[in-house]
Amino acid sequence: MKIVVCVSHVPDTATKVKIGDNGKTIDPKDVTYVVNPYDEFAIEEALKTRDAVGGEVVVISLGTDANKESIRKALAMGADSGILLKSDSYRDSLSVAKALAAEIKNQEAQLVFFGKQSVDYDAGIVGQLTAELLGFNSVSVVVDFKLEGEKITAEREIEGGREVIETSIPCVITAQKGLNEPRYASLKGIMAAKKKTIEDKEAAAAENYTEILTMSKPPAKSPGKILGEDASAVPELVKLLREEAKVI
């Protein structure tokens, strides 16, 4: 089976955000970019599925040449080939999804893995947007996945528990932490990845429906009071919570 994994290339979660001079994006200086953490679970599940049912895993990332670093990482973990959908300017989620959907259709993939969310804009929607554009089933925020023939049984996280969902391919799965333990790329994998191809393609054009006007820092929270260093401070704490904050 042809399996696609979509990966985004994002600032490391430890990044200290500084707003850029344009007032609309972060200042990319000194920022380390990595594979979106949730996409590692997506890659792992794609590889596991391929190893179980046969077929190939194609990694797709939309962005600039820099995204090749994340594609390369997925190849080093074991994916078969990569595609960079080149796009230099900012695209909103639906515009990204339209370009991804066009390429997934072109690939004739039956199963597509996404991360549940990119840790840059935290939208959490590209997977389901793409699924619907393709007319595929979808299960989001998945922590357990099983494929038997055409049938999919997946568990998704909800408030206070999990939903067990039955559906079938063609399907989009968005991966949540807990789905699996992503493998490390072995030295052999890293060497092998150098020989695998990453194809460059123009991303299909699609209009943006949203526009970022400004990016700003949230109002700084001033550090509060340290009331003491032992249990003798507890009565005052409880009093403040009750009378000042009125939360208990």
């Binding site: 909103d92 999804a97 929607i125 997977g127 619907e132 925020v141 408030e159 949203t210």
Partner: peptide, 23 residues
């Protein structure tokens, strides 16, 4: 922006070709 809302909203956005902003 609950588990259900987050799941449905993007699907509706694709269906009606709408811009979408979450959370």
């Amino acid at each position: 922006n609950t588990a259900m809302g987050k799941d449905l909203a993007p699907i509706i956005a694709s269906k009606i070709d709408a811009g979408i902003a979450t959370d």
